[in-house]
Amino acid sequence: MFYYLFDYINEIFNPPGFDVFRFLSFRSALSAITALVMSFMIAPKIIRKLKESQIDQPIRDDGPKTHKKKAGTPTMGGIIILLSVIVPVLLWSDIKSRFILLVLFATIVLGFIGFLDDYLKVVRKLPTGLIARYKLMGQIFVGLVVGTAVYYLPEFAQYNTQTTLPFFKNLNWDFSYLYIPWVVFIITATSNAVNLTDGLDGLAIGTMIIVMLALAILAYVTGNVIYADYLNIMYLPGSGELTVFIAALIGAGLGFLWYNFYPADVFMGDTGSLALGGAFGVMMIVIKKDLLIPILGGIYFAETLSVIIQRLYFKYTKRKYGEGRRVFKMAPIHHHFEQLNWAEPKIVVRFYIITIILAIISLTSFKIR
């Protein structure tokens, strides 16, 4: 909104200094600051309201015993993140941008699905929350909309079914008619992966902030013809506008981390984790870097892989030996380290360090070609 207001003022009255609002870097900075300030303003009120309403995170009986002390901590704090992202994006971005509209759509819809899941579990006291198939249907719906949009919209016409192949020069991967199913898979996978990662105080949001810092650079260079040509990557005009959204997410994430780091005052719940994971997946898809997800989102990939390995091995050994066996002491893998008596902050900080390393590898992948 402010983007159009200041652009109108600049065109009609041409006051000195107003041209700065056209620059992505300036609007991204304003978006991050607005999100950070907003999260600090609304978080205490929302946390207090959640506590008064006794909207507490259910503690699993089969989870780590150390988590029993987390009983009574309010959940659904993802509302703080969503509000602190959506408002700055509406204020400072070009909301006519198809890139912005697609990621906003995914974030809001998946946030709503996560909210329903949290509401049913915490308020209505349904143990499983939203039935898994309904949650999956929602994720598939978002994937179908995003995949169809990228397939048919003129902004993506040159590369609609293609994606960048990391570490290879002048080589893209074309999914052809399988592109839309691929997009559905990516969005479903990333939203669930971040959801699985959200098991320790500050883990999901902290790693997401690091991932977003790298993604901001990727989005910016993809939308800049000079940098895209220099790095020999796909040039997608307008994709740089995503940096305004990413900056808002970073600002909102930092504000939320203030209250979410150990010992947490609030958990994001599925309201936040599904929305954040979906937003990450959509942005990687629209800037054509989706094959980089296992590296940049390596922590989320490892968390998901640990659950898959644990379940498959348990079923296999139970069928073969009559007794299920485990690869990890507990899955997802962050719980494995808890069972090794690692302190929770130690696990979280080490996962941060790994995410930073993976982010650096992701950024250098375009020069090692």
Rank of each mutant, 00 (worst) to 15 (best):
K68M: 03
K68E: 02
K68I: 05
K69V: 06
K69P: 01
K69E: 04
K70Q: 08
G72A: 11
T73G: 07
T73A: 07
M76V: 10
M76Y: 07
G77H: 03
I80W: 02
I81K: 05
I81C: 03
L82K: 10
L82W: 05
L83S: 11
L83A: 13
V85E: 11
V85M: 12
P88L: 08
L90M: 09
L90T: 04
L90E: 04
W92C: 00
W92N: 00
S93Y: 01
D94F: 02
I95S: 00
I95L: 01
K96S: 00
S97E: 01
S97W: 00
S97K: 00
R98S: 00
R98C: 00
I100C: 00
I100H: 01
I100S: 01
L102M: 09
L102I: 05
V103M: 01
L104Y: 06
L104D: 05
I108C: 08
I108Q: 04
V109P: 05
V109D: 08
G111C: 05
F112P: 08
F112Q: 06
F115S: 03
D117V: 11
D117H: 13
D118T: 14
Y119D: 13
K121T: 07
K121F: 07
V122Y: 10
V122D: 10
R124L: 11
L126K: 09
P127A: 00
L130E: 01
R133N: 02
Y134A: 04
Y134Q: 06
M137N: 08
G138N: 03
G138T: 04
I140P: 06
F141R: 09
F141D: 09
V142H: 13
V142G: 13
G143F: 05
L144D: 10
V145Q: 13
V146N: 07
V146C: 05
G147D: 14
V150F: 07
Y151L: 15
Y151P: 05
Y151S: 14
Y151I: 14
Y151F: 15
Y151K: 15
Y152H: 15
L153I: 11
P154M: 12
E155S: 15
E155P: 15
F156T: 13
Q158T: 15
Q158R: 13
Y159Q: 12
Y159P: 05
Y159F: 13
Q162E: 08
T163L: 02
T163G: 05
T163S: 03
T164M: 08
T164V: 10
T164Q: 09
P166D: 04
F167C: 03
F167M: 06
F168H: 10
F168G: 04
K169V: 12
K169Q: 12
L171E: 10
L171H: 09
L171C: 07
N172D: 08
W173Y: 11
W173C: 08
W173Q: 05
D174F: 01
S176M: 02
S176N: 03
Y177V: 07
Y177N: 08
L178D: 00
L178Q: 00
Y179P: 02
I180Y: 00
W182G: 10
W182E: 07
W182I: 12
V184N: 03
I187L: 11
T188A: 12
T188E: 02
A189Q: 09
T190E: 08
T190D: 07
S191I: 14
S191C: 13
V194K: 12
V194W: 09
L196N: 10
T197G: 12
L200R: 12
G202A: 15
L203F: 13
A204G: 15
